[in-house]
Design a protein around this nucleic acid. Structure first.
Ligand SMILES: [Mn+2]
Ligand SMILES: [Mn+2]
Ligand SMILES: [Zn+2]
Ligand SMILES: [Zn+2]
Lengths: 145, 145
DNA sequence: TAAGAAAATGAAAATTACTTTCAGAAAAGT
DNA sequence: ACTTTTCTGAAAGTAATTTTCATTTTCTTA
C-alpha cells in the first residue's frame, strides 16, 4: 500500500477530510530527502502553492507524524524537523554542529544493545533518539588552523 | 577540588562576580538528583529564597553548563532540563512517557559502537544524546487492561 | 445534484519557553 | 571609602508553535 493510500485511509478512519492542501503537502514532503522544519517546508511549498498557509503545513506534518508517515526530529536548534518514514530501515543521525550537515547511520548492534538495556530495567521501548553531534569530515579539515 | 571551588574559580577566571544568589542556586542544584527544568528549579528555590528571580536561575544554570558542572538535557517536552555532572561516569536516559520517570543507564558497548560509527564517516563526535522513550516497569503493568 | 452537517483553511492572535533590557544594587580592586 | 564593573529582578522582547475564528470546502444524505 502506498503512502498516499495510507494517508487517505488514516484520514477517513479518523473522520477527517481529504483536502487538496493535504495532498500537495504530502507529495512535496515525500519527494524530498531532507529533514525539513515546518518553516522550511512552508517556504518551499509557497513557491508552487502560494495560497497554502503556515498553519496548514504545520497541522499536516503533525497528522503525518500521527499516522506514521513522518518522524519528528529535534537536533537542538530549537526547530522541530520532519523526515519521511519510508517503512525501510530505521536510522539515526550524525549532526555537524558547524555546517549543519546531517548524516544517517544504521547500526543494528546498537539497536540490539539498547533493547538489552531496556530489559535490564523492565522498560518497554516505544521510540528512541540517538544523535551524535560534532564535526563532519569536511568541517574537521576546515577547522585545523 | 569540590564543585563550589570549581565554580568560584570559573567565575574569577571569567571576570565574573561571586554572588549569594549564584551560591544558593548551585547548592540547591547540586543537592538534588533530579533533572530540573529552569522553571522547576526556580519554583523550588522560591520556597526558601523568594527574592531570587527566574532570570537569575536561568543565567546561573547556563553558567553551570558552561563550566562543566551541569549538563543540558532535552527530552522532547519543550523544556530544557539540567542535571549535575558529578564527574563520574557518563550516562544516558530511559524516559517513561506515561509517568515521566527518568532512569539513567550506562552501556560502554554502545559508547564504543557509536565511536565506530563516527569513524566510518570521518566524523568527530563532540557530544551525543541517546534516549529511550516508552513505559517504565510500573507503567507497563498499569496499562495492561 | 442540492442541501446540510462537519471539518478545514488561512490570517491573526495567543501561548510558551527562553532571552534580553535596564535601572538600581552588590561585589571587588584600589 | 571610592570607583568601576558586574549582577539582579521585573518587565519587555523573541521565536517557534499552537489556537482561534470567520469563511470555505468536503462529504454524506436525500
Ligand atoms: Mn534522517
Ligand atoms: Mn541523568
Ligand atoms: Zn560540517
Ligand atoms: Zn512510568
Amino acid at each position: 500500500m502506498d503512502q498516499i493510500q495510507i494517508f487517505t485511509d488514516y484520514l477517513r478512519q479518523q473522520g477527517l477530510k481529504n483536502t487538496s492542501q493535504r495532498m500537495v503537502i504530502l507529495e512535496v514532503f515525500l519527494n524530498s530527502n531532507l529533514h525539513y522544519s515546518t518553516e522550511e517546508l512552508y517556504l518551499k511549498l509557497r513557491k508552487s502553492h502560494p495560497r497554502i498557509g503556515y498553519a496548514t503545513v504545520h497541522r499536516t506534518l503533525k497528522l503525518l507524524a500521527e499516522c506514521g508517515l513522518a518522524s519528528e526530529l529535534n537536533f537542538g536548534d530549537g526547530q522541530t524537523r520532519y523526515e519521511p518514514c519510508r517503512g525501510g530501515q530505521h536510522h539515526d543521525h550524525l549532526v555537524c554542529t558547524r555546517c549543519g550537515k546531517i548524516i544517517e547511520f544504521v547500526e543494528p548492534r546498537i539497536e540490539k544493545l539498547q533493547e538489552e538495556v531496556a530489559e535490564r530495567y523492565g522498560f518497554k521501548i516505544m521510540s528512541h533518539r540517538h544523535e551524535l553531534y560534532g564535526l563532519c569530515s569536511d568541517c574537521s579539515v576546515a577547522s585545523e588552523s
